[in-house]
Amino acid sequence: MKIAQLSPNQKIYLRIKTKTMDYNYAYKTNQAVFELTELTLEFCQTNQSYLINDKLANTYINSYYNEQVDNIKELLHHQLKTGRNHKAYLENLLGILEKRIEWLHKMKYKSVDFFNNCSIKTIPSSYFPPVGTSNKISFKNFLNDSIVPNSQEQKVLWFLQSYEEEFNHYENKLDFEKGLVLYVMSLYKRALSILCNYVKTIYEQVDFIDFNKLSNELLSETNPRQKKERNCNINLDKKSVAHLFRILLEEDFLVFDELNEANNRLELKRFVENNFNYQNTKKERLPIKSFNREYSEVSSPSSPEVKKHKEFIDKLILMLQARKNKIKD
């Protein structure tokens, strides 16, 4: 059963637009957009797994959606350079992408309610599952805590940990499967948003762009995945960094997701890993990796770190008090 499909009018519109543009690039772009926005979700009885567009969830964990988005950007770049009626085409494309994003929100893609809200077809046991890395392997690695640090699986682990209560602490493989589906849906939503923002940027500048002279500069300027030149250095050890960001998050100085507390913590960990360096005992600057471990230790109420957290707060109070005393009225 297919869900979140394009309306007939949208498909006809894109096919008509193909006639006014370079056929090769327009056709390829449209097909790539169809492939990204069409979504099929099924449950395979044979191996008790969910299939997304006839593929196991593990297929999407690495760079599947990122590659799709990058391909569409490149095709769209060539299409705009050779085609016509850019504003109308981009406006329609925006509508298609925004409709998909709206559907994900309507289905509550971040919640366990997602499985009740959307239509999922059950495939009979006679169906032969697709070839690919079995989710059973990931499930065993998850249970045995044998995830490779700093790998893509590590990111999946953090996501799954934020849903442990909702999925019964993953006592069975089916709950693990559902957790993987929600993770893939989060990747899917992110990919759609990146592409939507990219198209919107071009659309807003469409009247000022000479598409005949369009180069890859526009592509790079609107690409949110550009590599940063440097991270911010923090003059604290790794554990103290965890104490600091725990305070900032729990006191609502930093907010990443106002609706989902678990996802709020997850996004904080990603933010710290992607943007900060800590200082080790040798005064060396090192990137923060595997931050989940330190943060879990300092935030656990039963951890020995509770005493150290209080000590960190006392030091912070003394520092702020000293700063306050230096300020003249």
Rank of each mutant, 00 (worst) to 15 (best):
N47W: 01
I120A: 01
N141Y: 04
N216E: 11
E251V: 01
P149A: 14
S299M: 03
P304F: 15
K189V: 11
D252P: 10
Y13A: 02
N24M: 14
T46N: 11
D175E: 09
N92I: 02
S302M: 14
L192A: 07
E294V: 08
N235S: 08
K283G: 14
T40H: 00
Q152D: 12
K228W: 07
M185D: 01
R84Y: 15
C44T: 01
P129D: 01
N116L: 03
K173G: 06
K28C: 05
Y203K: 03
K11T: 06
K121N: 02
N260G: 12
E311L: 11
K2F: 00
A191G: 04
T133I: 08
K155Y: 05
I209G: 07
I120Q: 00
F256C: 13
I147V: 08
N58H: 07
L6A: 00
V181D: 03
Q5K: 03
R15A: 15
M1F: 00
L254P: 10
K189G: 09
E294Q: 10
D113E: 06
R323H: 13
Q79A: 14
K121C: 00
Y109P: 02
K121R: 06
Y203I: 01
I101Q: 08
G83H: 06
S111P: 12
K328Q: 13
D237Q: 12
S290T: 10
N117K: 15
Q31R: 06
A26Q: 05
V241K: 09
R84T: 14
Q279D: 03
D207H: 08
V206S: 09
E153H: 15
Y13F: 14
S162M: 12
I101G: 03
L254V: 10
L320D: 11
F139H: 11
L41R: 00
L97N: 03
L56V: 03
D22I: 03
K310I: 03
G179K: 04
N172A: 05
E98V: 11
L266K: 03
V156W: 13
L180F: 02
I147P: 04
M185T: 01
A191Q: 02
S134V: 06
D54T: 03
D70F: 06
K106H: 05
T40A: 00
L219G: 04
I234W: 10
L286R: 15
K239Y: 06
C232Y: 05
N30F: 08
T18Y: 13
E229S: 14
P8V: 00
Q10E: 11
S126T: 06
D145V: 06
E267Q: 10
Y23D: 10
S119R: 02
L192H: 02
N233Q: 08
E273S: 13
E305V: 05
R100W: 01
I3C: 01
I120P: 00
M107Q: 10
L93I: 07
L192S: 02
E164A: 13
K307M: 09
S146A: 04
I101C: 07
K17T: 00
V181M: 11
N260L: 08
Q226T: 12
Y25D: 13
F208R: 07
E250C: 02
E250R: 04
S215G: 05
C196G: 09
E42G: 02
I137A: 11
S296E: 14
V112D: 15
T59Y: 09
M21L: 11
S300L: 08
L249H: 05
K326Q: 12
